[in-house]
């Protein structure tokens, strides 16, 4: 059965870029906020750029937070969070005040880079160092470069970390918890290796992850 991929449209970010990355590797993906379509989906992608508080507000007001809890945590559909979409699954963010996240990764919080010598945002190509093997990395060499652009990072215990990146400090840049995958970098903007991650995600099946 072919994948039925949806990209969650909650008014934040570069959805079209993510959609065409799936197209490039031979899949179709639907951009939607329609609950019925999301319930039918086999794979769910949460991209996003922008501010954490606004993003949560949008997810809540569209009824998507509750729906995603059901589809991801109960129905265990493969999930890919990208950039802000990764940060949103933390418990808390400290971007412009304190905000509650979706809370799928225990003890994870989103905090700002503090080192004064660093330029913020962290923008450009940086290496991901593998921490734990993951199906998300099939066909990708360790220490490959990916495109990052963010001012806040995901601070979490190493329990679910699969990749780290160095920018002033070592931070978690990719995670996997069962069916939940997320990257701080933008695979859709990271050329060959990024497209490989998109492809690996699309090729996952719920069965293979449980």
């Amino acid at each position: 059965m072919s994948a039925n991929i949806v990209i969650i449209d909650y008014g934040m970010g570069n959805l079209r870029s993510v959609q065409k990355a799936f197209e490039k590797v031979g899949f179709t993906a639907t951009i939607t906020r329609d609950h019925a379509l999301i319930k039918e989906a086999s794979h769910i992608v949460l991209p996003g750029v922008g501010a954490f508080g606004d993003a949560m507000k949008n997810l809540d007001s569209l009824g998507l937070s509750d729906l995603l809890h059901v589809e991801i945590l109960e129905h265990k559909k493969p999930f890919l969070g990208i950039c802000l979409g990764m940060q949103l699954i933390a418990e808390k963010s400290y971007e412009f005040g304190e905000h509650q996240g979706l809370g799928w990764i225990e003890n994870a919080k989103v905090v700002r880079f503090e080192e004064s010598s660093l330029k913020i945002p962290h923008v450009g190509w940086n290496e991901m160092n593998f921490h734990t093997p993951s199906v998300l990395f099939n066909g990708i060499p360790d220490h490959s470069n990916f495109y990052f652009v963010h001012s806040y990072y995901f601070e979490a215990p190493s329990t679910y970390a699969i990749g780290y990146c160095d920018y002033g400090k070592s931070f978690v840049c990719a995670i996997q918890k069962e069916n939940i995958f997320a990257t701080q970098f933008h695979p859709e903007k990271s050329q060959t290796h990024g497209l490989q991650i998109i492809k690996n995600f699309a090729n996952l099946t719920k069965e293979s992850l449980c």
Partner: peptide
């Protein structure tokens, strides 16, 4: 920046 983020 408020809507799309500074990185934009």
């Amino acid at each position: 920046a408020t809507i799309f983020g500074s990185q934009c």
